[in-house]
Write a protein that binds this DNA or RNA. Sequence first.
DNA 1: GAAGCGTGGTT
DNA 2: TAACCACGCTT
Length: 298
Amino acid sequence: MGLQSDLLAWAERSRRDLPWRRTRDPWAVLVSELMLQQTQVARVAPRWADFLERFPTASECAAASVGDVVRAWEGLGYNRRAVSLHRTAVTVVERHGARLPADLRALQALPGVGPYVARAVLAFAFEQDVGVLDTNAARVLARAVAGRRLGTRAEAQAMADSLVPASRGWVWNQAVLDLGALVCTRRRPDCGRCPLARHGAGRRGSCRWDAAGRPEPDPVEGSAGVAGRQTPFVGSDRQGRGRLVAALRRSPVPVTELPAAAGWSTTEDGQARARRIAGSLVADGLAVVGADGCLRLP
DNA sequence: GAAGCGTGGTT
DNA sequence: TAACCACGCTT
């Protein structure tokens, strides 16, 4: 009984059949996690298989140009991830014999790979018993396990690691992530459908927050590991970068046409912004300036 | 219009 | 160490 068996039983019943859950290939798992880390399942699902068809291994990705990887990343957003993925592929070929290391520190040393992706690869490709902590898992920990706000990331990670049932890391982490994403959501947790909540009399339930009567404030408020609010997107540099990269995917852009490609007027202000955005793309390895005065993908 | 979100660089 | 901010696209 208890939280762990409640959650594992729920995972068994509500098994989600996502394509990347059928593979244990570390490269394929890495690609899926890099896509999923900031892009929703519905948008990743059709693109993951296409990307792997194009770049089935780290070696083939490393051999391609950055521009080809950025083009294959279209529609996923946060294009720096594509540059990081290419760099990671090169590093894996040069330093790890073209195979992803099954080691937390070595994985985290790869560009674009942080605590979440490194542990996801360990859990979902190498089937190690580590706690995978993203914002969904952090909500489940704060509400159901702690019943209170988590103070630090280290505390949340230690809690995540300590909960993993021995030799069940793969299914356990899938279950925690699914519960956070589908049921224990940020704004309106669906406790009526939660396997951890008490339903009617006679059974206690294994969620501490629910057992306490779900008092305010919600434990996720200000809790470590739980994502906060985003700054507005419309009119932001991020929006301009996205439009500029979209234009670069089609063809090189003459420097004089940068403001239009970024979606801004050719006022002095628009030109200054466009230059700044182009500079940030170059700094991120997403663009280069050619001898012909055009900005293009590397 | 707003929500969703991990990494890396900086403080 | 830990918090903060920039980074995109779809529904």
